Computed example of a mutant assay.
Amino acid sequence: MEEFLPKVGEDNHNYEHYRFVAEEGQQPLRVDKFLMNFVMNVTRNKVQKAIKDGSVLINDEVVKANHKVKPSDVVTVQFEFAPRKTETLPEAIPLDIVYEDDEVIVINKPAGLVVHPGHGNYDGTMVNALLYHFKNLPENSEGRPGLVHRIDKDTSGLLVVAKTEHALSHLSKQFHDKTSERLYYALVWGNITEDEGTIEGNIGRNLKNRLQQDVFPEGDQGKPAVTHFKVLERFMYVTLVECRLETGRTHQIRAHFKYIGHTLFNDERYGGNAVLKGTTYTKYKQFVENCFKLIPRQALHAKTLGFEHPTTGEMMRFNSDIPEDLQQTLQKWRGYTLTNK
């Protein structure tokens, strides 16, 4: 599968050009949905505009949105886009700073805030905010100021940021050596019968949907990943779990729990935004839809963060409150469980 990066056209317009070859196992899928699966951060409106403009081709023929992509089809698309900013600029975005000294900053990131600029998110990120609030932050190996680790846009919770080169090096080594502590709260579909357990399996990019990560239990692809979990509360059709990460792969908790049949609640990218467990009663479905409205994101929160201070050597541990949207969702499930026992 090939992908062409953005370039400037002859008419001095900026375009993103992509080319995909559908896998042999590709099930017939509308081309608009196919592109939503394979183009990072693309919006439905952007896909529809490209189709309307005749910029989406299958096997060199212009197609409509309802055309089905089949195995071995060559799909090409050209998106017009605004010129990419080459410089990350400071922005006056407020940050919830829970701790700061001369070496480190601990931030409680809200859901919806992207951590660093990337395709489709060139501004409005936590890095833009960091540049506004702090000067001379050290850059990591990817040129991102202060960042030691990251969490997904729609995941809330704690992050540590380095203020000095020494802190960046020291903290990065802790995350690499798995000596840092990271605990997450996740609401997942289904009743997990075990009180605690461990999920193991290599994690790598899904072969059919590049926006998802997948688990490769045979270890033939991806990178090793280990997630330990403990059940905190059961609500008949969903379970609240505490997850301790031994590794830090992209979408690790989301991919691991989908793999064991317990997709995160309202995780749209992994199919958790449908009623996966429960009854067929209309009243129940409406209850779930109301919960989705309360927490319009995956129900995942980075609650606890621990690390050794890079200068003093002291073990530091921070806890964040469960955000309001998750609290309200848990309360609704508690009420439902009590009423329907």
Rank of each mutant, 00 (worst) to 15 (best):
R297F: 06
M36P: 05
P138Q: 03
S141G: 02
T193N: 00
F175T: 14
G201V: 02
V215W: 10
D102H: 07
P71Y: 12
T239A: 11
E142V: 04
L168K: 04
I151F: 06
L130Y: 10
V160S: 14
L245Q: 01
A50T: 08
G146Q: 00
F287D: 05
A92P: 07
Q331A: 15
K85A: 14
K277Y: 04
T250R: 04
K230D: 01
I151E: 07
N59I: 01
K223I: 02
P71H: 10
T304P: 05
F287I: 10
R205Y: 00
H149A: 13
P224G: 00
Y18I: 03
F307M: 15
L330A: 14
K163M: 11
E324S: 04
V231I: 02
Y132H: 15
K7E: 11
K68M: 12
E16L: 10
L158P: 07
Y122I: 03
F292R: 12
K332D: 11
M40A: 15
G118W: 02
K293N: 13
A225K: 04
V161P: 03
Q212G: 04
T193Y: 00
P6F: 02
M316W: 05
V114N: 10
H251N: 02
A167G: 00
Y18M: 08
P117D: 07
P310C: 10
D321T: 05
F81Q: 14
C291A: 13
L158F: 05
A274M: 04
S55N: 10
R84M: 12
E194N: 15
L294R: 07
S169V: 03
L159M: 15
R234P: 01
I93F: 15
D73L: 03
V106S: 00
P323N: 10
F38W: 14
N273L: 02
T125F: 03
S156L: 01
F38Y: 12
K303H: 03
V56L: 06
H67Y: 15
E200P: 13
Q48L: 15
W189R: 07
G306T: 05
M236H: 08
E308F: 14
T263W: 03
N273A: 05
T312F: 04
D60W: 01
T86K: 05
E242R: 08
T179R: 09
A22R: 02
I199L: 04
V288M: 09
Y132M: 09
R182W: 08
Q327H: 06
E2P: 08
G25C: 08
N108R: 01
L5D: 08
L137S: 10
H301M: 06
L207I: 07
Y122P: 00
F235Y: 15
N140C: 00
G271E: 15
G306M: 02
H119T: 12
L187A: 03
L294S: 05
I322V: 02
F34E: 12
D60K: 08
V56A: 06
T280L: 06
T312Y: 07
R44P: 09
G219A: 08
P217Y: 10
N290D: 14
A111H: 15
N136A: 07
L35I: 13
E80Y: 14
G278D: 05
T193V: 01
V31M: 13
I97V: 12
E16D: 05
A299W: 03
A255I: 11
G313C: 10
E23V: 11
E181T: 13
P323A: 13
N340H: 08
D53R: 13
L168H: 06
L168T: 03
